[in-house]
Design a protein around this nucleic acid. Structure first.
Lengths: 193, 193, 193, 193
DNA sequence: CCATAACCGAGACGGTACGTCTGGTCTTCAA
DNA sequence: TTGAAGACCAGACGTACCGTCTCGGTTATGG
């Protein structure tokens, strides 16, 4: 539906990729520096060297900009790969342990809380919350595989379990609670018997 | 602990309980009606029939007012009691199922997301997140009891499990995901084997 | 002097004359109605249908707005022309008498006191005080002429005398003193022998 | 008029002279330091070590406190005595010259403008404006004497002339105009021929 | 020798206005 | 047509004072 008649061309200047990128970079930088609710459209515009209107033209709200920044993977540092030792429980313990350690670090804790605040007001950020915190489709597939391979009980609701794990991380961030190194292993042990 | 050093005495007029109550009631009402981030100090003051300065005198920020409102139990509707059938898994399934149903209702979903947004910026709200969502000390004690009675595996980390359950509810709220009626039962089944 | 360097041009929207005019009209109206020190920026903004920031963008203070309103001649009613009968003393007596009568009227008295209060805090209003009270350049020129024509003593310091006359009016306003009809004539008689 | 029925006496503690004095001193000090319109009741109370209510109990407004401070002679520095050389014109020239010099000094200029602002909103300050600026009853009497002694023209309206002189000083203050040393002599020469 | 009454410092209260900041829209000009 | 610049209306921010009102505590009469 955005196709145009053959021979026709858009008239006037076309959307500036430079402006778009610059907005997303500014957003990422300010989000990391000052958190979601000190983020302002004016601040982004100024940091990006872009007019406010340019932002309002292409995004509907602050949270939409943040959502796109998140999608582009510029918002949060990448998460560690899940190891593959053959022992799914050990692998998940390692992964969850790293996640717990991550949110225990004050800077990252603030980052995650900001992300949660953003998710609270923007549906599409909420939808990507799992991914953003490292609970990617790949991970889910891995667990699914293991279950089908008989390493896990067959009645385990994989999606629910992953959500609960992400939830544990989120609540930990919101409570500013630090964690014993063992907690991840115990939780995985309880969840995936 | 609010006692003052001997010999010292408060001088001048004393804090008005009427003003305090009126602020908390206004906060509860506006929070429910318009959500955390449309909440304003001016709005609360005006709704409460109180001067702005009276709010700034006793609270440091919007989130502090919300925190106190939460503590007073005025922020969220009360949660259902956990039934006591003797079967701890069934009881928890019932309880979690009700919680899931609760956040599936759009109004309550918005309420919970607002609460999460508030928790993201205020530590003491974060600390009370479990309680606020119904995962009270009573509940934890119940599970602990059942474990000691041998109904649950002895190595289960009760606190972690409860956090994961609350997390599941929170993430569900953030993802605006609705749930099959079975999800609660399955999750409990997986968690508490 | 507000011209900008050749080649440079203003970018962005241009100042709204409608907003400016509307602010000055609101100021004139509120000044007349309630006096200088019941005048508020918020009141002006609201009466003018303008955002507060628009006032702060273009004026530094309440007194600056009042000064500009005064310069535009919107603040005070026009003053009577000085008659020209050929007899400079009689003409000035008439003029000063009218001025005295003017400040004797309570509404106008309050207006003049407000103007004086404004002048006390804003230099440019002070500078225009003479003009605002009707002691215009034209009047000074008339006296100068008469002196040169030999109708008045040659050593008379015209500017000082005019200032003293305006001062007499001002002090009369500040003392809320009413005046015998004769005072103006007597004072002129004493001043311009 | 504040007398009470014979036989009756006030019961209870009597007005604290210390508090009264302390308020007036604080007022004088703050008036000199920051001017009339930066003067606040709270500032005075705090500076005086007195409760706000104590001020409101005894004075009706800020300007009333200032008026009383003025009456007590604490508001402005004392003015020079008028010399008595026998030549009334020379004496007045000296006096007015000193007054002009006084208001030419920026600190005093601000002081006089503050006084004028106070007079603009408080009648009793206005009434004392002449006295406060040194045009005391003594001075008026002196001129009156000289007139009766035939040194001045008999038809001179003494009160009007004095008011005009004070007015010249006031307008000079409002215009922030500095003066040639000769101005006072010339003006007296013109006024009292 | 109380009881009454008016004083005092302190400070909370409902308000108004301040001057600043941001949100979202609209206008102007250059490219 | 886009993008920068920036003015516009709107409205919340947090602060400063306003004038009124308790609150305890402190004098001074006068019954």
């Amino acid at each position: 539906m955005t196709a145009r008649p053959a021979g026709s061309r858009p008239r006037g200047a076309v959307r500036s990729e430079a402006a778009r990128t610059s907005v997303l970079e500014a957003t990422a930088s300010l989000f990391a520096a000052r958190g979601y609710d000190h983020l302002t459209i004016e601040g982004i515009a100024s940091e990006a060297g872009v007019a406010k209107q340019t932002i309002y033209r292409w995004w509907t709200s602050k949270s939409a900009v943040v959502a796109e920044t998140l999608i582009e993977g510029m918002l949060l540092p990448g998460h560690p790969e899940v190891p593959e030792t053959g022992d799914i429980r050990a692998d998940l313990s390692t992964w969850l342990g790293q996640l717990f350690q991550f949110v225990d670090e004050p800077t990252h804790n603030a980052l995650v809380r900001s992300l949660v605040a953003a998710a609270a007001e923007n549906e599409s950020i909420g939808e990507r919350l799992n991914d953003a915190l490292g609970a990617t489709a790949t991970l889910t597939a891995r667990i699914e595989c293991a279950r089908e391979a008989g390493e896990l009980a067959p009645e385990i609701p994989v999606q629910e379990v992953v959500t609960a794990l992400v939830g544990a991380v989120v609540v930990r961030a919101l409570r500013r609670a630090t964690t014993t190194p063992d907690a991840a292993r115990q939780l995985i042990g309880a969840l995936l018997h």
